[in-house]
Design a protein around this nucleic acid. Structure first.
Length: 894
RNA sequence: GCGGGGAUGGCAGAGCGGUCAAAUGCGAUAGGUUCAGGGCCUAUUUCCUUAGUGGAUACGCAGGUUCGAAUCCUGCUCCCCGCACCA
């Protein structure tokens, strides 16, 4: 077995020496931007990374060989908590820790033989990069897209910082999984909600994104038409505004529920006799965390306020309750209870004995009183007991009652989003300082552009208590840019997702010192044609990057709306059914595989074993298989077979196979079915090995193996280069052009079948001759049922309609029929009928051609009112006797 | 609960109306190899039959459409993955 690791080192050195993969900004070739989500440098390369880069590199290499000027860069998302935690625990400088990790991961990436243009490397933790975060922040601030406000925020007690809504998963911190607390704090936000409509609408433009991701984003943005309805609170002169998306069921409303945190409850509206109970409930509810609420399940709690509202539609008095299942963050924080048609309302009504009214009859037709939760009809049905809405479908009813309520002045339609503004400030050190100063006299002052960057101080101390920036004197104290007076800096830093929201623009002009990116360069390379990364960023990063793109466009810096044209979300790498993790002990170190069996083995295994989107189950024997495969391929170039002087039918076969393979591999790479592309290569290798067992035509063999090495290059570039060299080819295989496939070569195989087809055609001719003199009912056609008749039904139908050959042909050639039955087949018919002996040039397989011939024969027989009997060949000894070749169908004229 | 995706040979995993007993890899069995082992090579790997050939079952279960279904339709069962007290 060859030393694939040594081979890889040899070629990596060559690539570097020859600067093989640099991307010029100016090039006559069309551009192609292929990008992988840049990694957080945690210190080691894991299989998920290897998979990500194997996919991306294969594609980038393929596009490069197709003649594109491929921008394929790499960088590091280098700010973040782990560095700071390391600083606290190990007393190291977060910067030093991060740079060390970057060097480690980069070394491994280089060992993989990835074809990045390393001169474009970007690191987000250096001032040369993050000053532009600050610059963009200032631009956003000027436009009102960055603002500070006090409000209920998510706080992670373990990370000691606030989190964006997108970073809270099931009430827990996305990074450390601690329970998130809700606290009232003043924080910085980006106004992503300004773009909610466009972010939603433009999802439709993302035709090459996975549906899953698009659905998740749509749901996250959550645009809905609501109606806010005002109810008078009896005897108080006050009003309460409920909000709902389902006013169709309003005739069934029997109570109103208000969230415990609602401001109305702070006004003195509660009757004195109820005040104590209500206040006790509110206090208890506020103490409960989101997780505690969840732990209680759906069990409903609540307290009656002693107040009532009146439903204008029915005149019904509706008691006003306080309950914690109603959330202040949704709608107006007050809901109208329709227990017949909302499960939560039903549970609440059951708990507190509130009346339940049916206003919808569902598909089940049940009109009885609603007493069980199975009867609660939420999704579909027709209105009943609802006055002017009766008989309408619930959706029609919704529209009608909304308009009605608005006309009456009782309600107001409102579009609401689930999406909230992006909370970007973090109380941590290792991030981009927010460029704002607080002056004792002038108040909040943004740092002037000329004073950027605001650099992280070196004198910070990492105690684990509080934000180190708050205690760094060199950082904290400064002069007011306006009045020169005493002032202090903002100590919050930016969410690291700010860094990753525009890094793909920076790659276009990575060394620009005057601006975040050069507009001309960006205009040239953007948008990213192919983006590859994990599904875990379906909302977070991908939504933020889309927002940034639109915001920067409105600042006049970009001229496109969406950053990523095509998105591939790769699947996870698992072992023994679980995600690889240190704690489970099922981690396979890529470095080890690379050292033992070479990077190409790892790459081919990963790409071959599963389609990129799917989960990949790690298998050590599978890795062995890939290793064997690469050795077999390499041997094709190492060990030349015996040569024969002449070309023969075997050459036809191998060339046909080669061109079929080129076609398949090309199509499979384009559609990211990389495992199938490699499978096709394996087939070719199998055929080549067989071919090489006997003496081969040298030129054909060398050409085929040469083409194979080019086809292999995206997946196993080092082995491909080695083969290329062994074959004595010039230059680098990586820079060779992608082979084109030749349809006529693919058809070569058909030639081999010619003799047999001639024989069949001969039979048809005999049928034709005989039918001329045959008496109706005297001709029997015996056909083996092995051959299936694609056109059987069609022709049989046509036989009944027409006796005219020309007419039949024109019917057969009808466009609709062509579409239905396939152009390739249909175009054969006229040629065959005209001159049955000569087979037309088509892409038909043997089976299709024979089927066609026979259906043609049957049709002709039909024209002469002959009798056709189709039966098994072996049922007729005569048939068997007359059949010259066993694989040929028997056509017998009796 | 809502939304999305699946169920194919011993395993993983293609195929998405006819060239399918079904790519490719793994595993298994037999044979070969200047072969210790390993590696490498060849053949076989649903069942029945044959000298070659052929036939019968098969692609979660039950129906349906079609000359023809792993592929299309309907129902069922089971699995996975997102979101979730969003009114």
């Amino acid at each position: 077995m060859a030393d694939l690791h040594a081979i890889s080192q040899k070629w990596q050195k060559r690539w570097e020496e020859e600067k093989a993969f640099l991307t010029p900004n100016e090039s006559p070739k069309p551009k192609y931007y292929c990008l992988e989500m840049f990694p957080y440098p945690s210190g080691y390369l894991h299989m998920g990374h290897v998979r990500n880069y194997s996919i991306g590199d294969a594609f980038a290499r393929y596009k490069r060989m197709r003649g594109f000027n491929v921008l394929y860069p790499m960088g590091y998302d280098a700010f973040g908590l782990p560095a700071e935690n390391a600083a606290i625990k190990q007393k190291v400088d977060p910067a030093a820790w991060t740079f060390k990790n970057i060097e480690g991961i980069k070394k491994q990436q280089k060992q993989m033989g990835l074809s990045y243009d390393w001169t474009r490397e970007v690191q987000t933790c250096v001032p040369e990069y993050y000053q532009w975060n600050q610059w963009i922040f200032l631009k956003f601030f000027e436009k009102g897209l960055a603002y500070k406000k006090k409000g209920l925020v998510n706080f992670c007690p373990s990370c000691k910082t606030v989190l964006a809504n997108e970073q809270v998963e099931e009430g827990k911190c996305w990074r450390c999984k601690s329970d998130v607390e809700k606290t009232d704090l003043e924080q910085w936000y980006f106004k992503i909600t300004d773009y909610a409509d466009e972010l939603l609408a433009d999802i439709d433009k993302l035709t090459e994104w996975p549906d899953r991701v698009k659905t998740m984003q749509r749901n996250w943005i959550g645009r809905k038409l609501w109606i806010d309805i005002d109810y008078e609170i009896e005897g108080t002169g006050k009003r309460v505004t409920v909000s709902t998306t389902r006013p169709d069921t309003n005739f069934g409303a029997t109570f109103v529920v208000i969230a415990p945190e609602h401001s109305l409850l702070q006004e003195k509206v509660i009757p004195p006799n109820r005040r104590k109970d209500v206040e006790a409930y509110i206090t208890a509810a506020k103490k409960k965390s989101a997780v505690e609420r969840e732990a209680e399940g759906r069990k409903k709690t609540g307290v009656f306020t002693g107040l009532c509202c009146v439903n204008q539609l029915t005149g019904r008095k509706m008691p006003l309750w306080v309950a914690d299942f109603v959330l202040t963050t949704v709608g107006t924080g007050v809901v109208v209870g329709v227990p017949g048609h909302d499960l939560r309302d039903f549970e609440f009504a059951k708990e507190f004995n509130l009346p339940i009214v049916r206003v919808v009859v569902g598909k089940d037709g049940d009109t009885s009183e609603i007493t069980k939760k199975e009867q609660v009809q939420e999704e579909e049905g027709k209105m009943v007991n609802s006055g002017f809405l009766d008989g309408l479908d619930i959706h029609e009813a919704t529209a009608k009652v909304m308009t009605f309520l608005e006309q009456k002045g009782w309600g107001k339609k409102t579009v609401r989003y689930r999406l909230r503004d992006w909370l970007v400030s973090r109380q941590r050190y290792w991030g981009t300082p927010i460029p704002v100063i607080y002056c004792e006299t002038c108040g909040m002052v943004p740092v002037p552009e000329k004073d950027l960057p605001v650099v992280l101080p070196k004198d910070a101390e990492f105690t684990g208590e509080g934000n180190p920036l708050e205690k760094s004197h060199s950082f904290l104290h400064t002069k007011c840019p306006k009045c020169g007076g005493k002032s202090r800096r903002e100590t919050d830093t930016m969410d690291t997702f700010v860094d990753s929201s525009w890094y793909f623009l920076r790659y276009c002009s990575p060394h620009d010192t005057k601006q975040p990116f050069d507009k001309t360069a960006v205009q040239k390379f953007m948008p990213v044609d192919q983006y590859i990364g994990g599904i875990e960023h379906a909302i977070l990063h991908l939504l933020y990057a889309r927002f940034f793109t639109k915001a920067l466009r409105d600042l006049g810096m970009l001229e496109f709306d969406e950053p990523f044209t095509r998105l591939l979300t790769q699947g996870m790498v698992v072992k023994d059914g679980a995600k690889m993790s240190k704690s489970l002990g099922n981690v396979v170190d890529p470095g080890e595989i690379i050292a033992k069996m070479g990077p190409d083995t790892a790459r081919v295994f990963i790409l071959f074993t599963a389609l990129p989107e799917k989960e990949l189950e790690w298998s050590d024997t599978g890795v062995q298989g890939s290793y064997r495969f690469l050795n077999r391929v390499l041997r094709l170039a190492e060990e030349m077979p015996a040569f024969a002087p002449e070309k023969g039918s075997r050459e036809n076969h191998i060339l046909s196979k080669l061109h079929k393979t080129i076609k398949r591999v090309t199509e499979h790479i384009e559609t990211f079915r990389l495992s199938l592309a490699i499978g096709a290569l394996m087939e070719l290798v199998n055929d080549l090995s067989k071919y090489a067992e006997k003496p081969v035509h040298e030129k054909t063999y060398r050409e085929t193996v040469g083409a194979l090495s080019v086809l292999l290059c995206p997946f196993a570039p080092h082995v491909a280069e080695e083969m290329w060299e062994l074959l004595g080819r010039e230059g680098l295989c990586s820079l060779a052009s992608w082979p084109a496939f030749d349809e006529s070569k693919i058809d070569l195989e058909a030639e081999a079948q010619e003799a047999m087809l001639d024989a069949v055609a001969g039979d048809i001719r005999r049928v034709l001759d005989l039918t001329k003199m045959a008496q109706p009912g005297k001709i029997t056609l015996i056909v083996s049922p092995v051959w299936k008749y694609k056109l059987y039904g069609l022709l049989k139908q046509e036989m009944e309609k027409t006796r005219d050959m020309k007419q039949l042909i024109s019917v057969c050639m009808d466009e609709k029929e062509l579409r239905t039955h396939g152009q390739d087949i249909m175009k054969v018919i006229p040629a065959m009928v005209k001159e049955p002996a000569r087979m037309p040039e088509t892409l038909l397989t043997q089976g299709q051609e024979l089927a066609l011939l026979k259906s043609g024969a049957e049709h002709l027989l039909g024209l002469f009112k002959a009798k056709i009997i189709v039966e098994s060949a072996d049922e007729s000894k005569e048939a068997k006797a007359k059949s010259a070749s066993p694989s040929k169908p028997a056509i017998v004229i009796a």
